[in-house]
Amino acid sequence: MSPVPPVPAAGTDPGIRRRLAALVHAVGTHADADTDGSGAEDEQLDPVLAGLDSLAVVRLLVLVEQEFGIALAGRHIVRENFRSLSALSALVETHLRPRGPVPGVGR
């Protein structure tokens, strides 16, 4: 039996980070960060995320849901999840992970 590869830490997928950076650019008014997915844009985009007003956060939320085909519940729409590109990426990755079977269902 081959070993199971480790699951990367949430918020580290470069493809997701790159797509999210593009969405932040779409709603941010002064986002000049590079979006190569390397993580270098975090320091440049984090202040942009922190400075978004409530309307911009709603626009970003809608764009994220459309881009990734996910629905974020109200309990996920908290400042901590939008404070940095890493936090936002972790939130998206959590919603994209396949969910295992529910114990006791379908037996």
Results as ranks from 00 to 15, higher is better:
V4H: 09
V4A: 13
P6C: 01
V7Q: 12
P8A: 14
P8F: 06
A10D: 09
G11F: 09
T12Y: 05
D13C: 12
P14W: 06
P14S: 09
G15Q: 13
R17S: 04
A21V: 02
A21L: 10
A22F: 04
V24K: 05
A26Y: 00
V27W: 00
V27S: 03
V27N: 04
G28M: 05
G28I: 01
T29V: 11
T29G: 15
T29W: 03
T29R: 13
A31M: 10
A31I: 08
A33Y: 06
D34L: 10
D34S: 12
D34V: 09
T35P: 00
T35Y: 03
D36W: 00
D36Y: 01
S38K: 09
S38F: 05
S38N: 14
S38G: 14
E41V: 11
E41K: 11
D42A: 13
E43A: 14
L45I: 03
L45E: 06
P47F: 07
L49F: 00
L49E: 03
A50S: 10
G51A: 15
L52H: 10
S54N: 02
L55H: 09
L55A: 15
L55Q: 05
A56Q: 13
A56C: 01
V57P: 06
V58L: 15
R59F: 01
L60H: 07
L61V: 03
L63M: 13
V64L: 04
V64Y: 04
E65D: 03
E65I: 05
E65L: 11
E65G: 08
E67L: 05
F68C: 12
F68Y: 01
F68S: 06
G69S: 07
A71H: 03
L72C: 04
A73M: 11
A73E: 15
G74S: 12
G74M: 03
G74V: 11
R75Q: 06
R75G: 13
R79C: 03
R79M: 07
R79N: 11
E80V: 15
E80K: 15
N81R: 14
F82R: 08
F82E: 02
F82P: 01
F82I: 08
S84C: 08
S84V: 02
L85Q: 07
L85I: 11
S86N: 10
S86G: 14
S86R: 15
A87L: 08
A87N: 12
L88E: 11
V92I: 13
V92H: 02
E93F: 07
E93T: 04
T94H: 11
H95A: 09
H95Q: 14
H95N: 04
R97M: 00
P98T: 08
P98K: 10
R99Y: 01
R99H: 13
G100D: 12
G100C: 00
P103G: 11
V105H: 08
V105D: 04
V105M: 12
G106E: 14
G106P: 05
G106Q: 06
R107N: 09
